[in-house]
Design a protein around this nucleic acid. Structure first.
Lengths: 171, 171
DNA sequence: TATTGTTATACTCTATAACTATA
DNA sequence: TATAGTTATAGAGTATAACAATA
């Protein structure tokens, strides 16, 4: 059981705190302007803001959405596997699943052959909600990239994936 | 004065926690694969890991590097201005400057006409160190993008900047 | 012995809000 | 009254480490 219930309030876990302009006129950014890393960070802040605003009705943050999506498409994951996929510590996955279970989205089912482990599955409500929020997230993603052309968006996606997958270019 | 000294230890403020593979085989990522937002997040995790590792000798995190760079290129900033540029709350800027002052990188100098305010400047040590870490950061950035061609890197940078600047395409 | 899930604990980051001293 | 900096406080997020049950 989680120490404190977190799913009850409707407020998002991250404060919006007004809009952040990533590049002000009259300000010199020096070496920052040439760094892919800083550009990625700027882009992330820009997108994250809109994500939280767009999903606050459901109290869904990016990690929660990722977890639900991964659980939906890879049923019967163990908690440790989920942690590895999401790149968080096991303890972090426990808290994430606690929250999603409190929200009625995910269930821990006993694993058939291993009495230590659980199989993670979406509830019916979780599946329905995931459909809704996937549409909301897709709309949000389209909105924050609306000023890019279709080609530009595709190119950006491909380059980001190539960047993140590192030197081992097999994705 | 800061409540707890943070600049003394050599450990980075963020735990590396091993390598995170953003895209495992045998795992279905569902809608996540088509989202620019998730691709940006993946890329950011990938880059952030290497940044912290590359700069741990100096105990410099991305926010600290950004702050030092902005202060260097825009001398005599007030604390509130720095906060606006970096997109953090004033109290966050205070803590950031506290840390950099503890490290001997930044100085608060009295503002000439306003007894409430300070002018932020780099110390001599700060300027020297910034040269070093700018080289280290540039090398780090080149390394994590080394598997992209020069053209791809330029395109990615341009698209990210366009993305982050939003519909108001004037940068 | 190793692994699964859990809990305890701590630390970073960042926000809001109240406070002070100036303006 | 408003602003600059500061401080107090709180909360999310995530890490490490120890633990019980099971393999």
């Amino acid at each position: 059981m989680p120490r404190t219930p977190k799913a009850d309030d409707l407020y998002p876990a991250v404060a919006p705190s007004g809009h952040f302009n990533p590049h002000l006129a009259d300000v010199e950014y020096g070496a920052l302007d040439g760094l892919v890393g800083y550009a990625v960070r700027r882009a992330q802040l820009h997108i994250y803001e809109d994500f939280v605003r767009s999903l606050q009705t459901w109290n869904i943050t990016p990690p929660r959405f990722s977890a639900m999506t991964v659980i939906a498409h890879n049923p019967n994951l163990k908690l440790t596997e989920l942690a590895n996929i999401l790149g968080v510590a096991r303890s972090g996955a426990v808290l994430l699943v606690d929250t999603l279970e409190d929200m009625g989205m995910v269930e821990r089912q006993p694993a058939p052959k291993d009495k230590r482990a659980f199989r993670l599955v979406l509830t019916a409500k979780g599946a329905t909600t995931l459909d809704e929020i996937t549409r909301a997230v897709t709309a949000h993603d389209a909105r924050v990239t609306a000023h890019l052309s279709t080609d530009e968006r595709q190119t950006l996606l491909a380059l980001l994936n190539k960047l993140a997958s590192g030197p081992n270019s097999a994705s």
